[in-house]
Amino acid sequence: AAQKFWQLPDADLHAMVKLTRQVDRVELKFVVPTSAHARAFEVFRIASTTPRRQRVYYLDTPDRLLHRRGVMVRVRSTRGRPDDSVVKLRPVVPANVAPRLRQSKQLVVEVDAMPGSYVCSAALRTRLGADDVQRAMAHQSPLHALFSKQQARLLATHLPGPGHIDDLAVLGPIEAS
């Protein structure tokens, strides 16, 4: 049944299950038709059906070099929650994540699993103030102010040449719920 649901060959399904034992978190990703939302909330015991409004921005070089290198840089503001930023690397092998980085309380190594595919990533997150993203997008504060020193160091290892966070192009916003 698991193989049918996940649409993965046995070897891949076993590799994914083995990988889940090496990570901090597993996120299961599903596409649920609108007509089935109520039932999905019931099955997964999700208490609130009120979506949280989010405004998401991605940062990359103009030629999308970070994306091609497996680096995702995102800032997000969510109504009713603190803003946040993340520098995510994918794919990663959990055992190959630098020990110093792996010990960080802000780092989460996770498997994103969806029918037909899965990927392991390492996400370094920072909580921000409620309006920090809005101020940066309005050019009232620099982009680097949205990232911790640890995030900036990690990102610097993937930027081209003498690149800097403030030189990245802002893509978005994407309105999400």
Rank of each mutant, 00 (worst) to 15 (best):
F147V: 13
R90I: 01
S104H: 03
D10R: 15
G161L: 12
V108A: 01
F147A: 12
R52K: 13
V56G: 01
H139P: 11
L171R: 04
W6A: 04
R127A: 15
K149M: 02
S177N: 12
D10S: 14
K18F: 07
L101T: 08
I46Q: 15
K149G: 09
V92Y: 13
V92E: 11
T126C: 10
L154D: 00
G163E: 10
P142V: 03
K29F: 04
L168Y: 13
A136S: 15
L146N: 03
P82R: 06
A136G: 14
T34K: 13
V109T: 10
L124D: 00
L66M: 06
T50I: 08
R52V: 11
R125C: 01
I46R: 14
A138R: 14
Q22E: 09
C120I: 09
V109A: 10
A15C: 07
Q106A: 13
A156C: 03
P91V: 06
I174Q: 12
T126G: 05
V111Q: 01
S177A: 11
D83G: 13
A152T: 15
V86M: 08
R39F: 04
D132R: 02
L168P: 11
I174H: 09
W6S: 01
W6R: 06
A130H: 11
D12W: 06
R125T: 07
A130Q: 13
T50V: 10
P94S: 01
Y118G: 00
D60T: 13
P142M: 10
T34M: 10
V43H: 08
T49K: 15
R127G: 03
